[in-house]
């Protein structure tokens, strides 16, 4: 890796660590994951629960995929704040004065938020496991991270959170407004996508939407929603991340910083 890019990644890491936002958002994602995992565990085995029976592979996969729901959106919000926030706080000028080759700055941001998403994914897996494993063990349904193909799901959770981090950074660079980026992300992921993806007449294309593709990657159980197989879901999500990042880079390079 060229020395300049290493320096810029280190500078972005320093930006990330010198405010507390990463910690607050990580706490939110951990609480979400812990709460949802506890609910799924408590309701398991009852008719109408959140997951299939946790003694089987399908139930365990759905349980572990919950971590992606906690980690990915908050990694995207953190990343959006990290890129679009430079315009909100008017630090973009200082950043581009230090590094006039703006594409390099965006490349460093994409890298650091890909890594931040990875960290969020790993943290949420740990939180989910810490809630579910002792509980289920006490109930006589011992569960292992390493059996039933669970490791693949855990890997998918980390990849999903990492790609969401990268997508959030790209979207923040593209839109240049922190509030619009975060509001847009939340509306899209929690309103528009769930509405569209439950319309079965549209399912031939809604399964390529980023959030639905991410559910395909982790095989998060969503009754009535058609999902891509994991590897295809991962590729489609990566495609979204790359396209949005490229558009955000082009626009940032061309934008006047006034």
């Amino acid at each position: 890796m060229p020395a300049v890019l290493t320096r810029l990644i280190a500078a972005e890491f320093r930006k990330l660590c010198t405010t507390r936002l990463w910690l607050w958002l990580l706490l939110v994602s951990a609480v979400w994951t812990a709460g949802y995992t506890a609910l799924a565990t408590a309701l398991s085995g009852r008719p109408g629960g959140l997951t299939p029976a946790l003694s089987g592979a399908a139930g365990q996969h759905a349980l572990f995929a919950i971590g992606a729901g906690g980690a990915a959106p908050l990694a995207a919000i953190l990343a959006a704040a990290g890129t679009a926030g430079e315009f909100r706080h008017r630090t973009a000028a200082a950043t581009f004065l230090a590094t006039p080759r703006r594409a390099r700055v965006i490349a460093a941001k994409l890298t650091i938020y890909l890594l931040a998403g990875t960290g969020y994914g790993v943290a949420c897996i740990a939180v989910g496991a810490a809630v579910a494993l002792p509980w289920l063990s006490a109930r006589g349904t011992p569960l292992s991270l390493a059996t039933h193909g669970n490791l693949a799901v855990l890997g998918a959770v980390v990849i999903s959170a990492a790609l969401f981090g990268m997508t959030g950074a790209g979207l923040g660079a593209l839109l240049g407004s922190e509030i619009i980026t975060i509001a847009g992300l939340l509306l899209f992921l929690y309103v528009a996508e769930p509405l569209l993806s439950h319309i079965s007449a549209l399912s031939s294309w809604t399964l390529y939407l980023p959030g639905v593709a991410a559910d395909g990657l982790t095989q998060a159980s969503q009754a009535g929603v058609r999902l891509l197989p994991p590897w295809q879901g991962g590729l489609v999500l990566a495609g979204w991340a790359v396209v949005i990042a490229a558009a955000g880079t082009v626009l940032t390079v061309r934008r006047d910083i006034t």
Binding site: K15, T18, R90, T91, A94
Partner: peptide, 15 residues
């Protein structure tokens, strides 16, 4: 502009 939650010293160290 400066990030309101970042110290002046950290701002300079970033750059």
């Amino acid at each position: 502009g400066f990030h309101p939650a970042r110290t002046g010293r950290d701002h300079l160290r970033v750059y």
